[in-house]
């Protein structure tokens, strides 16, 4: 049986998007009372909850303390019901520790950690439903949560994936597209300055295509940043009206 056609001749993808179009992104900030910051984000069918605690005293091993800046502690996990097949996901498996590390690196680049020496910032993200682009959804949700917590950042960190099918770069891959083979590139971007916080690709891609693929991913990131910006401003406005007077 022929595999699925990821991009039709008419330029439509499996779910009806065009090559450069993003999935629908919806988000809410401040979904938890207890946490310092929290956010819920849907990127298509990928649904993520992000929670931020801190900055606070370093708990546990004192050796983790950094005397010039804050420690960022990330934990990525997936709900048992997040994928098509129900699966128990123990903590600390290879995939999620790798993802945790990537998130940590991403936010170390964006958060102004030097303002909080000797303290710790916890970022917990949980995938409630996985439909491709888990990393980018996590980054986007965590950004909102960090902003909600009032932790200073250089800029938003927006992440998006891009794939490469039939010599055409596709933005924001869904699960079917990710598993359909081919390369997938994830970029986390500080959109205003255009600095890249993290770039990840685990399949082979010819050097000649890298530029176009990066370009597509970065454009997609900027698209995401617009949506996030709207969400933040909306939230800000609502809150300030409440407390304003």
């Amino acid at each position: 049986m022929a595999g699925i056609e990821l991009l039709s001749d008419q330029g439509y993808r499996l779910d009806g998007r065009k090559a450069t179009e993003l999935r629908k992104v919806q988000a809410r900030m401040g979904v938890f009372g207890q946490a310092d910051g929290s956010a819920y984000l849907e990127q298509g069918n990928t649904k993520v909850l992000a929670v931020v605690y801190g900055p606070h005293e370093v708990r546990g091993a004192r050796s983790k303390i950094l005397y010039d800046r804050a420690v960022i502690n990330c934990q990525y996990s997936m709900a048992t019901f997040s994928t098509a097949e129900r699966k128990r996901r123990p903590h600390g498996d290879r995939k999620s520790s790798e993802m945790s590390l990537h998130l940590k690196q991403t936010f170390e680049a964006a958060v102004l950690t030097q303002l909080y020496p000797r303290s710790q910032i916890d970022i917990y993200v949980k995938i409630l439903q996985a439909d491709g682009g888990n990393y980018s959804a996590c980054v986007n949700a965590a950004t909102l949560a960090v902003i909600d917590a009032g932790i200073p950042m250089r800029d938003y960190v927006c992440a998006c994936t891009a794939g490469f099918v039939d010599d055409t770069p596709l933005a924001d891959l869904c699960h079917a597209e990710e598993s359909g083979g081919g390369t997938s590139l994830a970029v986390a971007l500080l959109p205003r300055g255009g600095q890249i916080a993290l770039l990840q690709m685990d399949a082979r891609l010819h050097q000649d295509h890298l530029d176009t693929l990066m370009e597509a991913a970065m454009t997609a990131c900027k698209g995401v940043s617009k949506v996030l910006d709207e969400v933040v401003r909306q939230h800000l406005q609502e809150m300030s009206i409440l407390t304003g007077e």
Binding site: I147, P152, M153, R154, D155, Y156, L190, P191, R192, D229, V232, R233, L236, Q237, S240, I241, G244, E245
Partner: peptide, 13 residues
């Protein structure tokens, strides 16, 4: 009716 002070709101970046 209290939709003031909007202009001075900023976001990171």
């Amino acid at each position: 009716g209290s939709k003031s002070a909007i202009a001075s709101l900023v976001v990171p970046g």
